[in-house]
Simulated assay, not measured.
Amino acid sequence: MEMEKFNFEELKVYQKSLILIDRIYAETKEFPKEEVYGLTSQFRRAAISIALNIAEGSGSSNPEFRRYLQISLNSVKECVVCVEIAQRQKYLRLEEYNHYRKDLAELSKMITSLMKYLTRK
């Protein structure tokens, strides 16, 4: 028997956001314990917010979905700041930092493209 799927689960931007969440959870496990209620929590919540808002907005009217995508985009920016702080505090190696920056830039472009598509539709 095949598992039921929701439409938003087919969106590449949603799938990419889940990959980002997995990476952030794995990386932040290595952050200092004193960051558990600080940067670790904030970074995880911002990443989760990207996926949650894509899911929550899908299936709504186009203007409503765009509003949720804007919230997702703001969460991407929040993740950029978390990555910057983590790198400055030496919690991330330069290679990891660059990988996050690349992935976040790509997610930002994907969300923006989807917003533009919904505006034309």
Rank of each mutant, 00 (worst) to 15 (best):
G57S: 07
Q89F: 15
I111Q: 04
R45S: 03
R101V: 15
R88C: 08
L20R: 03
F65L: 08
G57A: 05
S108R: 00
F6M: 13
Y100G: 01
G59A: 11
C79Q: 00
E10W: 08
L107M: 08
S108A: 07
S108G: 11
A105G: 13
R66A: 09
F6Q: 14
I19D: 15
P63S: 05
Y117G: 04
F65N: 06
L118D: 07
A26D: 13
R44H: 03
A26N: 14
K16I: 04
Q89C: 12
L118G: 06
E84Y: 04
E56T: 02
E95R: 13
F31M: 01
K5L: 13
T40W: 03
N53T: 04
E78N: 00
I48R: 01
Q42A: 09
A105D: 15
E34M: 07
K102N: 14
R45L: 01
A55G: 12
N74A: 11
L18E: 08
Y91S: 05
F65I: 02
Y97V: 03
N98V: 09
Y100F: 15
M115D: 09
R88L: 14
S61K: 11
V36T: 14
L39R: 02
F8Y: 15
A86W: 08
E96N: 13
G38P: 10
I50G: 02
N62A: 07
L20G: 02
K90Y: 13
G57L: 08
A46Y: 04
N74D: 10
